[in-house]
Structure formats: C-alpha cells, structure tokens
C-alpha cells in the first residue's frame, strides 16, 4: 500500500533536472497534438495523476493562477500545490491553469480565451483522466503530419473551441504518467 503524500513530499527530487525532462514531454505533446508522451517526477496527492502533478510543478508558480475543479479541490491538493509552487488558487475566470476531471472543468465558457491583441492571455486546461478516451476524432493542423486519431471527451465542445482560433483554450490530457495535448490550432473532425 502506498502512503498518502503529505503536502511537503512528492515534489521533484532534482527540481531543475526533473522539470527540464517534464517540460520536454509537455512541449512535445503541445507540438504534436494527439501524441502520447511519458511525463513523471512528482508524486501528488492521489486525487490527481502523477502526470498532472508533474505538469503543475513544471509550469506553475506564484506568477500563475490555478483553478481547481470541484472533483480535485481537496485540502490536501491545495496544500500540496501551495507548498510546492506558491501558485494562488483562483476562480475559473481568472485562471491561467485549470485542473480537474473533464466534467468538473465544464463549462469551457468560464475560462479566459485571450484577446485579439493578446491571444496568449488564455487558460490552459489540465484534464486529468483515469485513462485516455478511445479514439473518436481525427485531428489535422500544425504539429500533425496528415492526420492523427485522438480520443476526446466531447468532440462537439472541443470543435467549438478550435473555431475560436487564434483565441481559445489549450488542453493537456493526463492519465497515470502519460500526457497528450490538444492546442486550439488543431482541426477536429468526427472519426468516421
């Protein structure tokens, strides 16, 4: 049996090196939508996956605002994120990063999508899943040679997000110690 992580434990053993490797996985994922990469280094409280915890430690700090969806908003995760990153926990409309399960993160309309002058002022969603969805969509666009099949929790909703391009949300999907991404730039079609 694995002991539950305390707020002080479960961080990176070698912060600079672990973060560098984890970022490479996150960058590869964002640059190659739909492809799955391994990401590890952190052991967060069990309410989120090691992949999601690693991503949070890699990208969040006092300069980023984090929203915790209701299914992961536990005192232990709050304490863990606060101790390891110093990131302020905020409401969805202020968030730079939003973390949780898909249903709990909805509705997508509550997050910032950027402005025409600054489309980067938008939220990134970290959708933590027990396991990745089975492929139900076909993606094309930047980062994709021809097409790639990807499992998405809700094709129609995510299609509406990509229509906003260059505004919109970028999404990481995490499960176990794996990560994949869906940037706003991908074209999504229902898989035949």
């Amino acid at each position: 049996m694995q002991a539950e992580t305390s707020q002080f434990s479960g961080g990176f053993a070698a912060p600079a090196i672990d973060a560098a490797h984890a970022f490479r996985a996150a960058m590869n994922a964002m640059a190659r939508p739909g492809k799955v990469f391994d990401i590890h280094g952190a052991t967060p409280p069990s309410v989120i996956s090691p992949a999601a915890g690693t991503l949070v430690l890699t990208l969040c700090d006092p300069e980023t605002k984090v929203f915790l969806a209701s299914d992961v908003d536990t005192p232990s995760l709050r304490a863990w994120i606060t101790f390891h990153t110093g990131a302020p926990i905020v409401s969805p409309d202020e968030a730079d990063f939003a973390l949780g399960g898909w249903q709990a993160l909805l509705p997508l309309e509550q997050y910032r999508i950027g402005t025409p002058e600054y489309p980067d002022r938008s939220a990134t969603l970290i959708v933590d899943q027990p396991e990745f969805d089975t492929p139900n969509a076909s993606l094309s666009g930047p980062g994709i040679k021809d097409h790639i099949a990807m499992g998405l929790p809700d094709v129609a909703q995510l299609q509406r997000n990509t229509v906003l391009f260059p505004l919109g949300l970028d999404l990481f999907f995490t499960a176990g110690s794996q990560i994949k991404a869906l940037p706003r730039s991908s074209h999504i079609s229902e898989k035949a």
Partner: peptide, 21 residues
C-alpha cells in the same frame, strides 16, 4: 533560475499552440 525557466516554458507552449504569434 527555475521561475524564469517556467515563465519561458509557458511562453513556448503558448507559441506552439498559436503558431507564428
């Protein structure tokens, strides 16, 4: 320092998500 790297890394991810911006 790590905080600076995180800031740059976040910018790189946004850049990849909005190619050319």
């Amino acid at each position: 320092d790590e905080q600076t790297k995180r800031m740059i890394r976040r910018a790189i991810l946004k850049g990849l998500a909005i190619p050319g911006y």
